[in-house]
Design a protein around this nucleic acid. Structure first.
Lengths: 242, 242
DNA sequence: TTTTACAATATGTACATACATTTGCACAAC
DNA sequence: GTTGTGCAAATGTATGTACATATTGTAAAA
């Protein structure tokens, strides 16, 4: 295993270490239950201070990936790993898997100025245009989801891409942008006029609303996605262990 | 405000500071959006080192209670109630963390015969009674969730337990039943008569519906839980990596 | 054989310190 | 006015050090 940390890299040491450990854990270098070398040793091995190492470990502990116990050492909590590192399919891939034939009812791409919040998330100025994609998708019997996506200008999308291809495949293959972390917020709302029209329901009818923040491997923001799902047409499933 | 930290207390300084900050935030000493004193000042004020202070702040940042930005300072982010999929806190614990005072509007316990589906999940016969708990909980300004829970008879609950205690703590400490895996399904619905009445909303208003299947360490079923959340009062957050 | 006591070990707590980086703001130059 | 430029203020990164505390394993005592 390559315990290589670049002291001259602009990316902080503790981040490098965090990534390294995460990789080792996921790639089963340190499988379930395995304890890693003690802090003093590991710090020496990586040629960093114990403080910095602890900083990295702390984050993984917060995430539940590692468990620390005095005298017993720091060990991998593999149960959480499996449930986290799996299922990451684009919408169309997921639907295909479930045997549902997806129809695009609407697909609209424009360039817009981000609002305060979006600019903040993308870490750009509000006068820098971003690509906005709206789409309404569903089955033969009608639409059931209305998506709005914003893409970070860094990616280099022109707006002329073939958005009928699975999105994350497109980003990965043509723009070497790999979606690797997503933070989602799910809630229920009453549909407003716009949503109701898009989903062909009455306004004030319930919708499942999903906000999705997508990051690349360096935890840099790449997409902000809003999804409005017709009630009863979509169930979100989560599996978690402790 | 009492900025008092006990340097002789056996409870670690950074924990004391964390608690103090949490309290100040919750009691609106530092309301939403307010920035707190800069780290160097605050450390001096509390008579602790900046390192220790940062340790405390870090935890609150991780929890999402605080947001740090260079030059702009550290500010309070008292957003809507949320639930993290991983770190497994009971409802009351989670609310306590957020500084929300939970009120029980209704708490009702009975023994019932399980329906087909439940019997199937619990792997028992339909003539074996199970404990059913219903509760309506919320804040001072009204209820925002209606829970229905069914517990596996194996656990040994009598129905006379103090259900005001955090549930998973009760199961663990008094019945050595450890909830360790949960599978959840989240969707949006329109409230029916019953739900509307419990949540004090109009029927057909949107609710977030969460089904939860809980298992113990041996992956044996222990609880089946239904939760109806008033729209906009609850946001479910999920973080996933690939 | 079981219990007790102790030492070794790994993490936990806490401090002081130094320099880097980002960014908000003010003021000067255009 | 707008643009640039630089200072200052805040967090971010990183190290070295010292001692505390919990727990495991082992050896001695009962």
């Amino acid at each position: 295993m390559k315990y290589s940390i670049d002291h001259k890299s602009p990316v902080p040491l503790h981040v490098q270490v965090e990534e390294l450990l995460r990789k080792l854990i996921i790639q089963d270098e340190y499988q379930n239950g395995r304890v890693l070398p003690n802090e003093v040793e590991l710090a020496k091995l990586l040629a960093i201070s114990r403080t910095t190492l602890r900083q990295a470990i702390n984050k993984l502990v917060y995430e539940g990936l590692l468990v620390r116990r005095k005298r017993a050492g720091t060990k991998v909590n593999q149960s959480t790993v499996s449930s986290k590192s799996n299922n990451w399919l684009s919408f169309s891939q997921e639907m295909k898997l479930r045997g549902i034939n997806i129809k695009n009812f609407e697909l609209h791409v424009t360039w817009v100025f981000p609002d305060e919040m979006l600019a903040n998330f993308f870490e750009i100025k509000t006068d820098r245009k971003v690509l906005k994609m709206e789409r309404v998708r569903g089955k033969n019997d009608g639409p059931f989801v209305y998506f709005i996506s914003y893409f970070h200008p860094r990616i280099g999308l022109t707006g002329d891409e073939d958005f009928k291809r699975p999105l994350y495949e497109l980003l990965e293959q043509d723009y070497s942008t790999i979606a690797s972390l997503s933070k989602e917020e799910i809630s229920a709302h009453a549909a407003d006029e716009l949503i109701a029209e898009k989903l062909q329901i009455k306004s004030s009818e319930p919708v499942l609303f999903r906000k999705r923040f997508v990051f690349d491997q360096g935890e840099r923001p790449i997409e902000y996605n809003l999804g409005y799902y017709k009630a009863d047409s979509f169930v979100y499933t989560v599996e978690s262990r402790r």
